[in-house]
């Protein structure tokens, strides 16, 4: 199987040292009436089987667009991918034919969407919507497909699944609808699950139920998971490693323990210091000053420089590369040493 043939399907299982999924120098831009929006500017991250990567960052930093590029669900145009690779078991998905891609999308790489609560179709029963996965992708008959749907509803712990399979979405609570969305995402045993803000709309008690369910499913099947969120608490709870995005770039990536112990980028550091904690009664909260960048008019040099307490003259002109701090850690800051040591600017 050659890597370059657009019809070849990605290999099963791992290929030597190649990660399960690798995003490499990805660029995504949108042609809009106001101008060219560079939403993703050279993002790289990777994921191994059984691993959880958390992607963190402010609203508009490009987290969802990166995920949409991995899934191959961007509308092109207006979107364009001028550069970059998305390798799945070594095969660049961006160069596959649409037909080959369909074999991957939803089956081997699945996604739970940010607005999942409105993603269910109100006029079909949940059982019909889940069983559709098996009818369309596995060619199952109606009877067998519904049986599988009940099994899945059990697996995501919907009480009385057998009785509820013919209920409509509005008859379920928000947390249960989110679990039905998860059921549909894992129906075909994907190798990678992308969860885009899977719990933001939910109460903490329900959020805890859903996160525990995802962790259990992951243990059972050794799925790789990309968890997109801006909740630093959820990240600390479940992630193995973290990629922090700002203005369409990765500004820091590291293991979860390293980043919470000592962040190496001023934005990450500011984020960690600006959240109140339930286990501590803090004093004044640190607030990152200023506003997130405007993608149509990005600051020169380092995109974070207008808000950065560590800024030096060269930050305004020289865009920092992603410096390697260790084999598993990078920071896009000229002064990462000072940040890591905790010296203020």
């Amino acid at each position: 199987m050659s890597k370059t043939s657009p019809h070849a399907l990605p290999a099963e299982g791992g290929l030597g040292n190649e990660p399960l999924l690798a995003v490499d120098d990805l660029h995504v831009e949108f042609a809009t009436r106001a101008g060219l929006v560079r939403a993703v500017n050279g993002v790289s991250y990777s994921l191994q089987a059984g691993e959880t990567l958390a992607v963190l960052g402010e609203s508009g930093s490009g987290k969802s667009v990166t995920a949409q590029a991995i899934m191959g669900i961007l509308d092109m145009p207006p979107a364009r991918i001028p550069k970059g690779e998305v390798r799945f078991n070594g095969t660049d998905l961006l160069r596959l034919s649409e037909e080959a891609r369909t074999q991957v999308r939803g089956q081997r790489i699945a996604m739970i969407f940010q607005d999942a609560l409105s993603a269910l179709n109100p006029v079909f029963t949940v059982g019909w919507q889940i069983s559709e996965m098996f009818r369309v992708h596995r060619g199952m008959g109606k009877r067998d497909a519904v049986k599988k749907a009940v099994e899945l509803m059990d697996r995501v712990r919907i009480p009385g699944a057998k009785q509820r399979v013919n209920d409509y979405p509005h008859q379920f609570s928000g947390g249960m609808r989110q679990r039905i969305m998860i059921a549909m995402a894992i129906a075909l045993d994907p190798e990678v699950l992308i969860a885009d803000e899977p719990t933001t709309a939910l109460d903490v008690t329900v959020q805890a139920q859903v996160m525990e369910l995802l962790a259990e499913l992951q243990r059972e099947s050794n799925m790789g998971m990309i968890l997109i969120t801006h909740d630093l608490g959820v990240v600390a709870d479940v992630a193995d490693k973290i990629a922090v995005m700002y203005g369409g770039r990765i500004v820091e990536n590291a293991s979860v323990h390293d980043i919470y112990k000592a962040p190496a980028h001023p934005y990450t550091k500011g984020l960690l210091e600006s959240i109140p904690r339930v286990d501590l009664k803090g004093q004044d909260l640190y607030a990152i000053k200023g506003l997130p960048p405007n993608l149509l008019d990005m600051p020169t040099g380092c995109a974070f420089h207008p808000r950065c307490p560590y800024r030096q003259d060269n930050c305004v002109t020289d865009s920092p590369p992603l410096y390697e701090i260790s084999g598993t850690r990078n920071s896009a800051c000229h002064y990462w040493r000072e940040v890591l040591d905790g010296d203020q600017g």
């Binding site: 903490v204 008690t205 959020q207 805890a208 909740d231 630093l232 608490g233 959820v234 990240v235 600390a236 709870d237 992630a239 979860v256 323990h257 919470y260 960690l272 959240i275 904690r277 339930v278 286990d279």
Partner: peptide, 10 residues
């Protein structure tokens, strides 16, 4: 309720 709140410290 409190036990469900994630703490930002791994």
């Amino acid at each position: 309720l409190l036990s469900a709140v994630p703490v930002p410290d791994p």
